[in-house]
Design a binder for these strands. Structure first.
Lengths: 205, 205
DNA sequence: GCAAAAGTGTTATTGGTACACCCATGC
DNA sequence: GCATGGGTGTACCAATAACACTTTTGC
């Protein structure tokens, strides 16, 4: 092959699936069973099929992994280093996917973003770019994906703080969420907590 | 081929090269010389080579088309519809590139974004997504790419207005640019204009 | 002196920031 | 009654929005 060759390549999608658990931002990783990078952790993903868009592939993979259809996801970057896969040229279309930590009890492969294990391929770079994208694009639509239908405002503040890596003043945060019309009070309150139970809110939009 | 096949594909980059000329946002298009879509307009772009990243390919193409090395560009989306190229499966990594309308006098294939001709492939969709990306991500870094070293503030306002598709109050716009430290006055003024000559400003950052 | 675009200040409103104490519940 | 997190109001400052007339130049 000369440098002028227009080589074909395999097309993969890689999903950086985020959730929030135990006050930390987590990413789903699988252990690799084969070489290369055997026993290292990797992002879930796979090759696209002949009749699929990258988005179709991602939906199929999310169904396999999480067993849900309606998961929020978004392309954020395509990784094209010629040597990123040592076997054969493979470009990867990177996606973020966001899941609410309820209803994922069956999955126990979540790793805190702040202390990731060693990763296969360029997956460390993919995750770090995904997190950066998330931070630069926070919005109520984004944080909504992490929340149950009803939630205490302090839980919502926690999500913003984890994504943006800043702290908010609790009084100002509450005022902003309520006056900007992002959330509204529900008639319900927290149950079975050993402190004053919080009012529950829901997204208005 | 069954639907389970993991087909390889050609990888292309397509560049939506924007500039501002005659108070309008323009895009560079070439006429296709071959089928399919012969004589329709298309975005400049090309296939990536075996030893290139998508970014390398784009740099090479920009050098060929514009003859400059230091052009600002950024990935914004990858297009993966299986049928987007009728010949053979080809995915396209979409880039925006931004050029200052000085020093592009030799290129006369600019088309106003507001009145584009018929386009080959899915290039209409690519351009519309590129424009949306530009609008959602305006920043001083972005507008800077369209400006010469020194410019009147009203010229800068024009760029913001074209990208964001809104109008600014001239007094408030000037105040904001100056007090936020984005620009600074230079000792120079406009020449050879048949009206009051404007002070020239430059980017501070 | 006319056409064309440049340049300028004040006021009102809104949104953001800073800050400390009491409240409701379970154990 | 103590530990735990929930919940609240005010004052100050900064940023934004609305608004109309004068200035400088070339012709």
């Amino acid at each position: 092959m000369t440098e002028k060759d227009y080589e074909k390549a395999r097309i993969a999608v890689d999903a950086v699936i985020f959730t929030v658990q135990d006050k930390s931002l987590k990413v789903l990783l699988h252990a690799r069973e084969k070489e290369p990078f055997k026993d290292k952790k990797e992002l879930p993903g796979g090759l696209i099929r002949g009749n699929e868009t990258a988005e179709d592939t991602l939906k199929r993979k999310l169904q396999e992994i999480i067993g849900q259809q309606d998961i929020f996801f978004q392309q954020f970057f395509s990784f094209t280093e010629p040597s990123r896969d040592p076997r054969e040229r493979t470009i990867s279309i990177g996606f973020i996917a966001l899941v609410n930590s309820e209803n994922i009890g069956h999955i126990n492969e979540w790793y805190a973003f702040g202390s990731l294990p060693e990763l296969a391929f360029d997956h460390k770079k993919i995750i770090s770019r995904a997190k950066h994208y998330l931070k630069e694009n926070v919005s109520s639509l984004i944080v909504k994906q992490f929340m149950p239908k009803q939630f205490p405002l302090n839980k919502l503040q926690e999500i913003y703080e984890l994504i943006e890596e800043i702290k908010y003043d609790n009084r100002n945060f509450r005022k902003k969420m309520i006056t900007s019309g992002i959330v509204e009070e529900t008639p319900d309150i927290e149950k079975n907590v050993s402190h004053r139970p919080a009012k529950l809110y829901s997204f208005k939009i």
